[in-house]
Design a protein around this nucleic acid. Structure first.
Length: 434
RNA sequence: GCCCGGGUGGUGUAGCGGCCUAUCAUUGAGCCCUGUCGAGGCUCGGACUCGGGUUCAAAUCCCGACCUGGGCGCCA
C-alpha cells in the first residue's frame, strides 16, 4: 500500500471539476460535525479547509467509527474520491477510502483554533505553535513573509547588495540604547543594537548600495506595545547621495510593500482593507512639528525629542504617513550630518505613521575630523571607535541611509495593537520562552 | 523605572461580603439526529493564583508575593 501522503494535495487546489478522481490530503482535524447519519470532518492545511464527508449507510463501518473518534487537531492523511457537491463549502467534498492518523492530539486544547472563543495575547504566545493554526495568526505571518520578500525585490531591483554584518560586537556603539552583554571567550562582547557602523564602513569599500535585514537587540527595560528586545531591522546605506534621495527610496519602498500586501487574499481574514499610500509622503520640519503641537496646546521645548503623546497628537492631525525632517543635531546620533557646517540642524529624518515611528535616517558625516569631533562631543571615546573611524581616513564618499523596523511596519499596516503579535516568538522584558 | 487596572474550569467570561453546592459560552466524555458550514437537542465532568489578615461569614474587603493588561518614561 502506498504512503497516504504521496501526491498530497492542498485543500484549495482541489476543485469540483475533479469529480470522481482519487486525491490525497493531509492536515489537522479542524472540526467534526456529527449529524447522525452523515458525518463531516473538516481537515485544515496551510491552504485552507477540505470537507471530508461520510454517510453512515454507505461508508465502511470501521472507517466511519475511526473518523468519528479522532480527536480534534490530530494530524491525519486522507485518501478519497472528490465529489462535486454544491452543499459543500468549497463546492467539493472528499468521500474517504482511507484515513491514517499520523499524530493523535491530546485533549483538551490550550486554545481554540476555530475562532469561536478568543484568547489573550499571553495565552496565544504560550501556545504559539497552536495559535499559528488560527486563520488570523497564520495570515499575519504569511503577510510578514510577503513584506520581507517585497523589500528584497524592491531593493534588488535597484541594484542594492544584500550584506550580513556581525551580531556580536565589541563595546563601541553609537550610544543611546542599552546593550545585552555576552561572554565572548575571555572577553566581554555585546549583541548589536544596529548595523549602523558596519554598513557605513562598507561605503568606503565601494559597495555603494547596501541593505541588510537582520535582528537588532536592545536591552531597554521598556514595557510597551511597540517595543521588543529583539526586533528585525531593514537597513540601507547609499553612497554619493543625500538624505533626500534615501527618503525617496524609503517612501517608494513603503508604497511598494503596501501594493504587495493589498492584493493578498488572506487580508480578508484579518478584516482589513488597507490602501497603498500616495507618494511622495508629506514632509514637515521639526520646527513645523513643534509649531503644530503648540497650536494643540502641546508644548515641546526646541531641542527636545517628541514625547509619545506629541507623536500621537501629530499623527491625529496629519492622519497619514509623513516625514519629520531637519532635526536638532543634539537629539540625533553623532553620524548625522549638520545641514550647514557648525549649525545645530541636521539632515536627519524620521518616517512616522500616525501611531508610531517607523524609520529614521540621515545624511551621514563623511569627514573624518567632524565625525571624530562629534563622537567626542557626545562624550564617547574616539579610541573605541577606531575600527570605524579608520574607514573614514582613506576615501569615504558622502552617503546616507536609514533603518526601518519591520515589526512596526507590519503592525501599522495591519492595524495590530501589540507588536508581539507580529513576531513568531517575541522577546520582551519578561518573555524568553517559547 | 513610575502610575493605573486585572488574576474565577483547557479557553474566553459573569459574580465583587451571606442568595456561590459559582454564571454563561466554548472545549471534553456520552447519547439523539442524513447536509453541516459558529450545526442543533439532551446528560455528565471540569475553576475562585499563592500566603497571611479582618469578619459570625471571604471568589468578594485589607496586606504581601507571584503572574498579567494598559498608559507614561527610557528607546527605535
Amino acid at each position: 500500500m502506498s504512503s497516504p501522503t504521496q501526491n498530497r494535495r492542498y485543500a484549495n487546489e482541489i476543485t469540483a471539476d475533479e469529480d470522481g478522481e482519487r486525491v490525497s490530503i493531509a492536515g489537522w482535524v479542524h472540526e467534526k460535525r456529527d449529524l447522525g447519519g452523515v458525518f463531516f470532518l473538516i481537515v485544515r492545511d496551510l491552504s485552507g479547509f477540505a470537507q471530508v464527508t461520510l454517510h453512515k449507510s454507505e461508508a465502511e463501518q470501521e472507517l466511519f467509527e475511526r473518523v468519528k473518534k479522532v480527536p480534534r487537531e490530530s494530524v491525519v492523511a486522507i485518501v478519497g474520491k472528490v465529489k462535486s457537491e454544491k452543499k459543500a463549502p468549497s463546492g467539493y467534498e472528499i468521500i474517504p477510502e482511507r484515513m491514517e492518523v499520523l499524530s493523535v492530539a491530546s485533549q483538551v486544547l490550550p486554545l481554540d483554533t476555530t475562532g469561536k472563543v478568543g484568547a489573550e495575547l499571553d495565552t496565544m504566545l504560550d501556545a504559539r505553535f497552536m495559535d499559528l493554526r488560527t486563520e488570523r495568526t497564520k495570515h499575519i505571518f504569511i503577510i510578514r513573509s510577503r513584506v520581507l520578500k517585497a523589500i528584497r525585490d524592491f531593493l534588488d531591483e535597484r541594484g542594492f547588495i544584500e550584506i550580513n554584518t556581525p551580531k556580536i560586537v565589541s563595546a563601541a556603539t553609537e550610544g543611546g540604547t542599552a546593550l545585552f552583554p555576552i561572554s565572548y571567550f575571555e572577553r566581554e562582547a555585546f549583541l548589536n543594537q544596529s548595523p549602523q557602523l558596519y554598513k557605513q564602513m562598507l561605503m568606503a569599500s565601494g559597495f555603494d548600495h547596501v541593505y541588510e535585514i537582520a535582528p537588532i537587540f536592545r536591552a531597554e527595560e521598556h514595557d510597551t506595545t511597540k517595543h521588543l528586545n529583539e526586533a528585525t531591522s531593514v537597513d540601507i546605506e547609499v553612497a554619493f547621495v543625500s538624505d533626500r534621495a534615501v527618503m525617496e527610496i524609503l517612501e517608494e519602498l513603503i508604497a511598494f510593500v503596501y501594493s504587495k500586501v493589498v492584493d493578498y487574499s488572506g487580508l480578508a481574514k484579518l478584516n482589513l482593507n488597507p490602501e497603498v499610500p500616495k507618494t511622495p509622503f508629506r514632509r514637515i520640519t521639526y520646527d513645523e512639528a513643534i509649531e503644530l503641537l503648540s497650536g494643540e496646546g502641546e508644548e515641546i521645548e526646541w531641542g527636545e525629542d517628541l514625547s509619545t503623546s506629541a507623536e500621537h497628537t501629530l499623527g491625529k492631525m496629519i492622519g497619514e504617513l509623513y516625514f519629520i525632517t531637519d532635526w536638532p543635531c543634539a537629539i540625533k546620533p553623532f553620524y548625522a550630518q549638520p545641514a550647514v557646517e557648525g549649525k545645530s540642524i541636521c539632515n536627519a529624518f524620521d518616517l512616522m505613521h500616525p501611531r508610531l515611528e517607523l524609520a529614521s535616517g540621515s545624511q551621514r558625516v563623511h569627514s573624518y575630523e567632524l565625525l571624530k569631533r562629534n563622537i567626542e562631543s557626545k562624550g564617547l571615546s574616539a579610541d573605541s571607535f577606531e575600527f570605524y573611524l579608520d574607514a573614514f581616513r582613506y576615501g569615504m564618499p558622502p552617503h546616507a541611509g536609514w533603518g526601518l523596523g519591520v515589526e512596526r511596519l507590519l503592525m501599522s499596516m495591519l492595524e495590530i495593537e501589540n507588536i508581539r503579535e507580529v513576531v513568531l516568538f517575541p522577546r520582551d522584558r519578561r518573555r524568553l520562552a517559547p
